[in-house]
Design a protein around this nucleic acid. Structure first.
Length: 280
DNA sequence: CGATTTTGACCAGCGC
DNA sequence: GCGCTGGTCAAAATCG
């Protein structure tokens, strides 16, 4: 995933500055068209007007080019800032270290998973894990706290194979396997957040090797429920892709808004930007 | 009757 | 080595 301009559809602006009387691609095209259509009886006055228009077009083209460069620089800067933020979030700051210090008895693998949570929601995960464990990422979904069923509707069909009450959370954790294909390696753990019981935390391990909608009797995605389409990117269906993109953005936004480290980093960044302005 | 859920038992990893 | 804990298994129960 490169940070090219095509990665930012919303930023794909049409920068054809200056109003042109007809759609053209370049000054050469203008000249070609003009040489075709210009009447021999064209007066000197008209020729001057044409030259003026040509000059205006060249200026507009130049301006367009400059604006494109500015846009590219802006996107590059955005990318760099985003990477810095991700890096900042993934590295353990002293106070975050004490916060994320795992309680005694917490397993190493789980701590790794917890570490992954901050980065896995972003595709450009910088940190590469040493082992060859399947991809793990977490999903926070709001649901009715009075609803006791640990079901996250994500378009796939799951088969529950266990439930446990964990030490650090009074709410039970449910274990699911993808029930569509026996060969599908994906597993899912669902548990209510200890802090906010209205939030269901679903931990996915691995990637589906099948289409979520290919299965018969797949549950329809109801509104007003924890419904998300988690189909892998790069699918053929544009609708699904858009849905996936939307859910990804929602997930990222939610994860970031819930992350105290992000809030702290944001506050630091804002303070850092404001203080020099005040002191100067 | 097959699929799914429940739930206690078992296993393996980790810290002490 | 032992105890704690999370993850999984598998038999029984339940559901459609």
């Amino acid at each position: 995933m490169g940070s090219t301009r095509s990665d930012y559809p919303s930023l794909n602006l049409d920068l054809n500055v200056g109003s042109l009387p007809f759609p053209v691609d370049s000054p050469k095209a203008v000249l070609a068209m003009e040489s075709k259509h210009v009447d021999k009886k064209v007066s000197i006055k008209d020729e001057k007007a044409i030259k003026a228009l040509e000059a205006e077009l060249v200026l507009a083209t130049e301006e367009n080019k400059k604006l494109n460069e500015v846009l590219a620089a802006t996107i590059a800067g955005y990318s760099e800032l985003r990477n810095q933020l991700i890096e900042l979030m993934s590295t353990t700051s002293p106070e975050e270290g004490s916060r994320s210090q795992s309680p005694p008895g917490k397993r190493k693998s789980e701590r790794l998973d917890a570490n992954m949570e901050s980065t896995s929601s972003e595709g450009s995960c910088k940190r590469v894990r040493d082992d060859c464990k399947p991809k793990v990422w977490k999903l926070h979904v709001r649901s009715n706290p009075s609803d006791t069923c640990l079901v996250v509707r994500d378009g796939y069909q799951w088969r529950k194979y266990g439930q446990k009450v964990t030490r650090d959370n009074p709410c039970p954790r449910a274990y699911f396997r993808c029930s569509f294909a026996p060969s599908c390696p994906v597993k899912k753990k669902v548990q209510r957040s200890a802090e906010d019981t209205s939030i269901l935390v679903a931990t996915y391990e691995g990637e589906h090797n099948h289409d979520p909608h290919s299965q018969p009797g797949a549950p329809s995605l109801r509104p007003n429920t924890a419904a998300l389409d988690l189909k892998s990117p790069g699918s053929k269906s544009e609708m699904v892709s858009q849905e996936f993109h939307r859910s990804l953005v929602e997930r990222m936004a939610f994860s970031l808004s819930e992350d105290p480290a992000f809030k702290a980093a944001l506050a630091t960044a804002i303070t850092g930007r404001m203080l020099p302005l005040r002191t100067s």
